[in-house]
Computed example of a mutant assay.
Amino acid sequence: MSEEFTGPPWAVDYTQEAEKYRISLSEDVRESLREAGFGLLTARHPYRAEHVEPARSTAPRGPHVAYFDSNRGWPLFTFLPRVAEPQIVVEEIFWQ
């Protein structure tokens, strides 16, 4: 029996620094970040979700950013489209 590529929702993992920063944000900002994350989790492919663009135009398959809170913040994430357990890895979160 061959394994098939699973679809959404995807697993999400935060680096330790991103998780610490996420926890330090106020509750309303975390809620806005959760809403943006929900869009990534349910998209057929996270790199094609709404409000998402490559972090660098020269690396369209590399890290991406997903804007939230009226573009005041964004997580920098990478999508690992593995057959078993595809995953979104949030490497950094920025909010101003």
Results as ranks from 00 to 15, higher is better:
27 E>N: 04
82 R>N: 13
34 R>G: 02
58 T>W: 05
55 A>D: 12
3 E>I: 11
42 T>R: 04
10 W>R: 05
22 R>L: 11
13 D>G: 02
84 A>P: 01
59 A>I: 10
73 G>K: 04
7 G>M: 09
65 V>W: 01
44 R>P: 00
95 W>L: 14
43 A>R: 06
13 D>L: 07
61 R>N: 13
53 E>T: 06
80 L>N: 10
96 Q>E: 14
1 M>C: 05
50 E>K: 09
69 D>P: 03
49 A>F: 03
35 E>W: 03
10 W>K: 06
69 D>S: 12
36 A>C: 14
34 R>S: 08
28 D>Q: 05
52 V>I: 07
31 E>H: 03
96 Q>V: 07
81 P>A: 12
16 Q>S: 13
2 S>P: 15
70 S>Y: 09
66 A>M: 06
23 I>E: 12
66 A>W: 02
18 A>F: 08
17 E>T: 11
40 L>Q: 04
77 F>K: 02
91 E>D: 14
60 P>Q: 05
38 F>C: 02
48 R>Y: 12
52 V>C: 00
68 F>A: 04
17 E>Y: 00
91 E>V: 03
72 R>W: 09
7 G>Y: 10
8 P>T: 07
8 P>M: 06
83 V>C: 02
47 Y>W: 07
26 S>L: 12
55 A>S: 06
63 P>C: 10
2 S>C: 07
36 A>P: 00
80 L>I: 14
2 S>H: 13
52 V>N: 02
32 S>W: 05
46 P>M: 08
75 P>V: 04
48 R>S: 13
82 R>K: 14
54 P>A: 09
93 I>L: 15
15 T>Q: 06
22 R>Y: 15
15 T>H: 00
43 A>S: 15
17 E>G: 06
26 S>V: 08
28 D>K: 03
74 W>Q: 04
16 Q>P: 07
31 E>P: 00
30 R>V: 10
65 V>K: 06
52 V>Q: 03
82 R>E: 15
72 R>Y: 11
3 E>D: 12
41 L>H: 04
3 E>N: 10
1 M>A: 14
61 R>M: 09
35 E>H: 02
26 S>W: 05
36 A>W: 00
22 R>F: 15
4 E>Q: 06
26 S>C: 06
92 E>V: 04
4 E>R: 01
90 V>A: 11
57 S>V: 12
85 E>I: 05
69 D>G: 01
52 V>A: 00
10 W>A: 08
45 H>N: 15
38 F>R: 07
66 A>F: 00
40 L>R: 01
2 S>T: 14
83 V>Q: 13
77 F>D: 08
24 S>Y: 07
33 L>Y: 15
90 V>R: 02
51 H>I: 01
3 E>T: 13
54 P>V: 04
92 E>T: 09
58 T>I: 02
3 E>G: 10
60 P>T: 06
6 T>G: 08
70 S>L: 10
51 H>A: 15
21 Y>P: 04
49 A>E: 13
47 Y>A: 10
85 E>G: 15
14 Y>V: 02
